[in-house]
Simulated scan of single mutants.
Amino acid sequence: MTHLVSVAQLVHLQRSAEHGTSPAVRLLDVRWRLDSPEGRPEYVRSHLPGAVYVDLEHELAHRSQPEDGRYPLPEITDLERAARSWGLHDGDVVVAYDDNWSVPAARLWWVLRRAGVAVRVLDGGIRSWVAEGLPVESGDVRPAIGTATLRDEATLRDEGTLQDGPVPPEREMRELKMNEVEAFLDGGVLLDVRTPEQYNGARTTGAPVAGHIPGAVNLPAMAAVTGDGRLQHPDVLRRIFASAGITADTLVAVYCSSGVAAMHSALALEHAGIRARVYVGSWSQWSNTRGRPVAIGILPSGRLSTV
């Protein structure tokens, strides 16, 4: 399955839909930043024609306790209700975009894809659309309620309808739980995609303690992005991930500060042909759980302490 679309490909899909030769295209605007999470004002000012705003913090996550992490996954019933409010129907071509290097759009990609929805990310986001001289509109789009049916991963597995067909259990796009992390490290690579300063403990960015999960390898998420916000070519991505000891045969899981940027790295890995799991709780959960080991420094083993 294609996980990214270019502007030219999106325009082609839209024209095909207009002529009745392909399914309807649903555009979802996931404007969000960690330091400015309310993206609706930017969306209302300017968005792709027909795009519907998605609230990452309230529709792609649910609020819980600090020990659950900053952005736990939404319940499948809540996600289905949100998807229908965006006007989604089964079989639609869903394309997500943002104005933040495709990081929040990747969150929607990962969350919807594991619920059985075929969704793609507009490479380069709204900036790439505007750069082609294509029109934008203002205001708020309120679509008619859709009828999409979402299913949790266990149901999809039982039905044999996981995205991309049957894959071995260790290759499924499953969430990595906190209690699975240390065992995963025995045979896989745990990728910390925060900045080097966050990884080595020089910065905390709001977490109660600094450092990284012992054994995790650092590779910042933005290493996968070009200067104009697009993902690197798959060949380039494979070289980048190889520098962290990751190849197509590697079992890999990803974490970040809050579980958003990690899904962007999962998208980049998928674009390179490498399936990754995501530790959704990420550092925001690990650092809020008493007794968890913490490593300080530039090496995966680091100088050990505990939360």
Rank of each mutant, 00 (worst) to 15 (best):
A223D: 13
V278P: 00
R194G: 14
E75Q: 12
G124Y: 04
G146H: 06
D140V: 15
A207T: 11
K177E: 14
A17H: 13
R26V: 11
S102D: 15
R174C: 12
S85R: 14
G211V: 01
L237V: 04
A261K: 02
S287A: 15
V294E: 06
T21H: 10
A244K: 09
V252Y: 11
F241C: 07
R31Y: 06
S85F: 02
D164H: 09
P74G: 09
E170C: 07
H3E: 05
Q65D: 10
G291M: 12
P196H: 14
V117E: 01
L4C: 11
L134P: 04
L10S: 13
A202D: 14
G133L: 05
A223P: 00
T289C: 03
D68E: 12
H212V: 00
E137L: 12
A248K: 13
V307M: 13
L108V: 07
T77D: 11
N218M: 06
I126S: 15
I274N: 01
V136P: 04
W101P: 01
E42Q: 09
L162S: 14
Q65K: 03
R194F: 13
A268E: 04
G281I: 04
I246S: 13
D140E: 14
L251R: 14
R277L: 08
G124W: 01
R157L: 12
R114D: 07
G187D: 13
V236F: 00
V136L: 11
L185T: 13
G215H: 02
H12A: 12
L237A: 02
D55E: 06
W86A: 11
Q285H: 06
E153Q: 14
S6W: 05
P196W: 07
V111H: 05
